[in-house]
Design a protein around this nucleic acid. Sequence first.
DNA 1: AGAGGTTACGGGCAGCGTAAGGATC
DNA 2: GATCCTTACGCTGCCCGTAACCTCT
Lengths: 292, 292
Amino acid sequence: MTFEQLKTFYWVARLGGFRRASEQLSLSQPAISTRVSTLESELGVVLFERTPKGVALTKSGTMLLGYAEQMLFVQEEIVKRVANPSKIEGLFRIGSSETIAQAWLPEFLKAFSNEYPRVNIDLTVDISGNLRNSLLQQDIDLAFLMGPVSEFTVENVDLPKFDLHWYKAKGSGPVDLQAIPVISYAAKTRPYRELMAELSRRIGPNVRIYSSASLSASLQMIAAGIAVGPYPQALASGLLSLGRIEEFDPGFQPSPLAFTASYLGEPRSVLAERGAEIAREIAHSWGKDNAG
Amino acid sequence: MTFEQLKTFYWVARLGGFRRASEQLSLSQPAISTRVSTLESELGVVLFERTPKGVALTKSGTMLLGYAEQMLFVQEEIVKRVANPSKIEGLFRIGSSETIAQAWLPEFLKAFSNEYPRVNIDLTVDISGNLRNSLLQQDIDLAFLMGPVSEFTVENVDLPKFDLHWYKAKGSGPVDLQAIPVISYAAKTRPYRELMAELSRRIGPNVRIYSSASLSASLQMIAAGIAVGPYPQALASGLLSLGRIEEFDPGFQPSPLAFTASYLGEPRSVLAERGAEIAREIAHSWGKDNAG
DNA sequence: AGAGGTTACGGGCAGCGTAAGGATC
DNA sequence: GATCCTTACGCTGCCCGTAACCTCT
């Protein structure tokens, strides 16, 4: 009996098939067959009923699953508590919404790769909805998104909120929201929908809303006087101090953007757990440094 | 990280040396070195301080030890609860006192090897004192002896007691313990010492006591009229029904022989745990079948 | 035909034992 | 020199991937 066998068993049980487990573990499918059947013959017990459309746990298999989970849990615990982080190797896939990427993500990456120098990082920047799916499909290990992700398998660590203020080009006259478009987050995002609803209610159907998937492009458009819009105060400070943009008050303020660091609780991943923790620390100290 | 590495680590920690662990695990000493140093480099942590006279756990090593014990415990649990006994292989070393060997040991061996057909059995018959030492030195895995063994590491399962009755050759006249020797268990045993003390008190210094390490030889001597002695009633029934010996009452009866099935609780051994359980069952049913 | 699992086979590498090497008393 | 652990090295055997095969829809 080896850890690899138990881990393989665990994933076959969890995903309900040898082929799916082979993808999860980056192995050939026959390798999964070998591992499982070796384990079965070592224990002298059949763990799966093979049906044409996948596999199902036998009674023995069900019993083993609990123990296998314990094993993998303790193993992660060892990696977390005993192992030296600088020796941990692997690939860690991070997904981030652009707001975070523009804010404290660089500092996070610095801190993370400092603690885990031998871990390679895959970074994806996307909108929260896509990140959520990627996370649930295990295409990424840790996501910074507008959460929380409410699936019960997902752990959500709350991150500091971003207050939204309204900005317009410096020196432009009073703002008439009927005349100048409002630019905001990409169309499929929650802040976009919220803003859309609020503006329709207050301004009427003539309001024009641009949406942009690129935060920095949006800010450039604001600075160029093409549009106005609500943006995280903390991210506007650069153009603000350059004198390119200025705040204004259209009479209401969208609710702050709430982010979480989210990861799958099962199976355990030390990197995801610790990554979320580091993110919380970094985000808080970044928030203090960049407070109004 | 593998089970073998953790097990090796455990034994090195427990025995305080690589060489001792290599003997415990039946491996060469360099193999222990390799395993430990591989584990150390995988965790990126030094687990042992190497001193000229052995090794000592580092702080990290101490932390790991707890987790390693958990792992090995769960592993044994899997073998015990999930694995099919008929597939378990290995060597199981049993030590038994002769009384047990003459009583229900054959039936026990039959039941045990029936449940674990692929486990080889090493049987040693010796006096309880030696069995106790062998057990503590891990030369045997399970001992049937006059217990309990009071070391805190040892688990003791109580077995049915053996009542001692006095026997003499059939047809011989009234017994004068001043005239005929008393034969009993080997000199280093507890029943011998108890009997010695009791006889000295009651009969006086002239009493002669033979001691014999062989139960069957002793019974033969009684049957031959050379001596008389107290023996387990259950074991005398053969010669009794053949009409070779008969009971008599010298006015007192030694206390019954109390046996235990004893094994080391740490590290766990499924075979020892289950073996003790089987022994208890077999001994009880044997006791009923052979009751006066 | 296609999806899912098994069997067959060759090759690479982990890990063993033997043997030699260092350190400390 | 004795004891204990480490290093060196050749070899064996395990386990992976490729490829062919089986079975059920």
